[in-house]
């Protein structure tokens, strides 16, 4: 067995097992740690595809920042005994969730079957990237020239989110002051 295939098998196994752990672990903190494992495995898969920048950003942003925030929030919340009693939920709830999961699974299977090969394809082949001077340069060039509109649009979206958060937080604190 050659090295990429071996590495792929290892990382994908970790990713799948980690995802299962995320769902089936009863403790939210354990789930969060399992999710970090999944992100790490994903980063490994990206690195195998030669997308080192995406791999680094995956770990830096998702595993290193967002999940730390998640764990922070979970630990701060004083959670009671988690509710895992499926019997308590209604029939409609169960039917709807089953249907949703089936539909999502069908879409996933369809997508996998429709893709012709498992290797990356598109305008940016490995040789093209190398000629552009590496992942970093290739992505940066694209991001700040052709895709600058999308880039700015995303930043507006984030700005909107920040403004909304600040507004919500401010309103709540003012309400508390009023009560006092």
């Amino acid at each position: 067995m050659d090295f990429p295939l071996l590495a792929f098998s290892v990382f994908s196994t970790i990713a799948i097992l980690g995802s299962l752990l995320v769902i089936f672990k009863k403790n939210p903190v354990s789930s969060a740690f399992a999710l970090v494992l999944v992100f790490f495995a994903f980063a490994g898969l990206y690195a195998l595809l030669g997308a080192h920048l995406v791999a680094a950003l995956q770990i830096l942003v998702y595993a290193g920042a967002i999940m730390v925030l998640f764990v922070f929030v979970i630990m701060l919340l004083n959670q009671d005994e988690p509710v895992h009693d499926l019997e308590a939920t209604g029939v409609i709830y169960r039917v709807v969730s089953a249907l949703t999961v089936t539909a999502l699974g069908a879409i996933l299977v369809r997508a996998v079957l429709a893709s012709k090969s498992m290797t990356p394809s598109g305008a940016l082949t490995d040789e093209k990237i190398a000629s552009l001077g590496g992942n970093m340069k290739a992505i940066s060039e694209q991001l700040f020239t052709d895709r600058v509109f999308h880039f700015e649009l995303t930043s507006f979206l984030l700005l909107g989110a920040i403004v909304a958060t600040v507004t919500l937080a401010k309103r709540k604190s003012r309400g508390e002051e009023g009560e006092v």
Partner: peptide
């Protein structure tokens, strides 16, 4: 000799905090 260089450093270093959190 990764072309992401210093980003690799930061991303791996940011994982170290999980040891502390855990």
């Amino acid at each position: 000799n990764l072309d992401v260089g210093v980003l690799y450093c930061f991303s791996i270093a940011s994982l170290g905090v999980y040891g502390i959190i855990m």
